[in-house]
């Protein structure tokens, strides 16, 4: 039945963790940073204050997890959705490379950004 070991449980674990994290935290970030602040519903915090907040070790870990896990969550879903929408099994392997590869690159970028903040 199988040709190679199935690594989907590995990716699924990150998909699940990312789903939990993003479902709890992504909407409020979009609401605040994408709408409430730009539209002037609330006042922008000072740049220095915001930077100091982001440099808090806990904030760094939180931001890294939020970005990395959201990317792995999305990568897994998008990979399966491509297969569902295009009805082509042949797309699955290239899609997996692009999706998970993208998530890994994004995670490295996030690690660097959070580290050198």
């Amino acid at each position: 039945m199988s040709k190679s070991r199935n690594n989907d449980p590995f990716w699924w674990s990150f998909f699940g963790a990312g789903g939990v994290f993003s479902s709890f935290f992504v909407p409020i970030h979009i609401l605040l940073l994408g709408l409430a602040l730009p539209l002037g519903w609330v006042l922008w915090p000072e740049h220095g204050d915001l930077l100091a907040l982001a440099r808090n070790p806990l904030a760094r870990i939180y931001l890294f997890l939020l970005i990395a896990l959201s990317l792995f969550h999305a990568a897994h879903r998008i990979r399966f959705t491509l297969h569902d929408l295009l009805l082509a099994k042949s797309i699955d392997t290239p899609a997996a490379f692009v999706c998970y590869g993208g998530a890994i690159v994004g995670t490295l970028c996030a690690a660097m950004t959070v580290w050198t903040l």
């Binding site: 039945m1 199988s2 190679s4 449980p9």
Partner: peptide, 13 residues
């Protein structure tokens, strides 16, 4: 062995 493999539970979306 079967459920973790290709075609198993993780193919479900």
């Amino acid at each position: 062995d079967v459920l973790l493999d290709h075609g198993g539970a993780f193919d479900c979306t």
